[in-house]
Simulated assay, not measured.
Amino acid sequence: MGFNTELTRRLGIEAPIVQGGMQWVGYAELASAVSNAGGLGILTALTQPTPEDLRKEIAKTRTLTKKPFGVNITLLPTMNAPPYNEYAQVCINEGIKVVETAGNSPGPVIKLLKSAGIIILHKCTTIRHAASAVKLGVDFLSIDGFECAGHVGESDITNFILLSRARQSLGVPFIASGGFADGQGLAAALALGAEGINMGTRFMCTVEAPIHVKIKQAIVDASEHDTELVMRRWTNTSRLFKNKVASEALKVERASTTGKFEEIAPFVSGKRGREVFINGDKDFGVWTAGQVIGLIHDIPTCQELITRIEKEAIESVERTRKVFQPQSKL
Rank of each mutant, 00 (worst) to 15 (best):
N159A: 15
K111N: 12
C124W: 11
A133G: 07
K111W: 00
I120N: 04
L112N: 00
Q89K: 06
P108N: 05
C148D: 13
K97V: 11
E94A: 11
S164F: 12
K111A: 09
S177W: 10
F160G: 12
I110C: 11
I161L: 15
S132V: 05
I118N: 03
A181H: 08
L112H: 04
F140E: 01
S177M: 07
G185E: 02
Q168L: 14
K114E: 00
G103W: 03
I157S: 00
G185M: 05
L170R: 07
V138G: 04
G137R: 09
P173V: 02
L113R: 01
E100G: 10
R165I: 06
K135E: 15
A116W: 12
K97N: 10
I120G: 01
A130S: 02
C91R: 07
I120P: 02
R165F: 13
V109C: 10
S177T: 14
L141W: 07
A176R: 09
D144I: 09
K111I: 06
I92P: 02
A181T: 11
H151W: 07
L141K: 10
A130E: 00
G183N: 14
H151E: 05
S132G: 13
I119C: 03
C124K: 07
A181L: 14
L121T: 05
S105I: 09
K97P: 07
C148Q: 03
V99E: 04
G179M: 12
C124H: 04
C148G: 01
D156R: 08
K123W: 11
T126C: 13
L170A: 11
K135P: 07
R165N: 09
S164M: 14
I110M: 06
R167P: 04
C148R: 08
A130L: 03
V99G: 10
S132P: 01
L170H: 11
F174Y: 06
C91S: 03
H151I: 09
A149I: 13
D156G: 07
F140K: 07
D139E: 07
G150E: 05
D156I: 02
G137Y: 07
S169H: 07
H122G: 05
I119S: 02
I161A: 15
L136Q: 03
G183C: 15
N159V: 02
T158A: 15
I143G: 01
T125E: 15
R165K: 13
I161D: 04
I96F: 08
L136V: 03
S169I: 04
G179A: 14
I118T: 01
R165H: 05
